[in-house]
Design a protein around this nucleic acid. Sequence first.
DNA 1: CAAGCGACTTACAAAAAGTAAGTTGCAAAC
DNA 2: GTTTGCAACTTACTTTTTGTAAGTCGCTTG
Lengths: 108, 108
Amino acid sequence: MSSAQACESLGEPLSRVMTLLGKRWTGVVLATLMPGSVYFSELRRGVPGISDRVLNERLTELIGENLVSRTVIEGPPLRVRYELTEHGYALRPALDQLTAWAQEHLAP
Amino acid sequence: MSSAQACESLGEPLSRVMTLLGKRWTGVVLATLMPGSVYFSELRRGVPGISDRVLNERLTELIGENLVSRTVIEGPPLRVRYELTEHGYALRPALDQLTAWAQEHLAP
DNA sequence: CAAGCGACTTACAAAAAGTAAGTTGCAAAC
DNA sequence: GTTTGCAACTTACTTTTTGTAAGTCGCTTG
């Protein structure tokens, strides 16, 4: 396989992931959803520094990509659960690799 | 291990990686450097859509994190090679996982 | 000797993210 | 029984990042 082909085959799907993960907070939001479903307010607490506005924006995008599902629990009080879909959960090995890499190769 | 602890242990190094990869183009630039060292102009061609300005910015950041090295080749003509360091190259398994995930779980 | 390449740099516009306050529906506190 | 407060957003506005285009400098090629 030539270098150009390697670049192509690596590049195309990779650039699609990076369109998602290349936005601020997306990766951390997904990681925070890994342990299981959470309410909006729990998510916000789990992702220190993110604002309501952006958290909502990221969730909307992830729902649009079928990586996260949204379930309204009619109240009162009304609550909303967010949960990874199968596709979203499948990102776990990749995020684990990134975490391992950071621990070994990224300065604190 | 409690869910809160899991969140912590996954979260801290992950959020450091995402500070890097969460910026536009960073992931694709790193992936493009994987096959070997390249000149600035080759890199630009290898990352369609990126501008000189941002490519330069990303490279400067990556050099600052010791993930990429820069070598000036005195001309004329003067050229500059960019190459992954050991730390940068170590990201390969993670990027491969992301690529594999995109192929299986991300809509084109 | 005009035009172009390589590697940037600069100046300016558009898009994304940050910040803060507002909204709606209810419920416990005073 | 009115104020306070939470949950889940939404809106308006500021700041930061990106995008776009042109400019620079040394040299080379037609």
